[in-house]
């Protein structure tokens, strides 16, 4: 990549005024560095990942509305977590966390466990149990 070819496309970085460093060659073929505001290829890839996450959030909402899942899945997707990450944050085995997704099991959870989830999602227990998928 030549220095003048460092892409300066609009991106999520440029919105926040963040530029990243790239390595490129100058007119004599020697390496130097330059800043990039973003690159089309990366923006597409990042958007695609964000879209996938948003779809998962919507799906979680639907499942909660229809009584198929507990609010845990929604907040897990909202915080871009997967099962191992959430299990580590609440300090429980993955199989237990997965069980808590069943609305019937979730209803019976004691406050101590609910508090762990609330802490992991940085919300209150009330917000957690009262989430209805809206």
């Amino acid at each position: 990549m030549k220095k003048e070819e460092i892409p300066q496309d609009e991106s999520n970085l440029s919105k926040s005024n963040v530029k990243e460093l790239c390595y490129a060659t100058d007119e004599n073929g020697n390496y130097t560095t330059g800043l990039s505001t973003g690159w089309e290829a990366k923006t597409i890839a990042l958007e695609s990942s964000i879209n996938t996450i948003n779809e998962r959030i919507e799906e979680a909402k639907e499942n909660i509305k229809s009584g198929k899942a507990s609010p845990i899945v929604y907040f897990m997707e909202l915080h871009r977590m997967d099962w191992p990450t959430l299990a580590d944050y609440v300090g429980l085995w993955q199989w237990r966390v997965k069980r808590h997704v069943k609305p019937s099991v979730f209803k019976k959870l004691n406050n101590k466990i609910l508090q762990k989830y609330a802490d992991a999602f940085q919300i209150s227990v009330d917000e957690l149990i009262n989430y209805k998928g809206a």
């Binding site: 970085l13 990243e20 690159w39 290829a41 990366k42 597409i44 890839a45 990042l46 695609s48 990942s49 996938t52």
Partner: peptide
């Protein structure tokens, strides 16, 4: 593919 591109080109 999107994940692959991100691993290759991301910050």
């Amino acid at each position: 593919l999107a994940q692959m591109i991100r691993m290759q080109e991301e910050i």
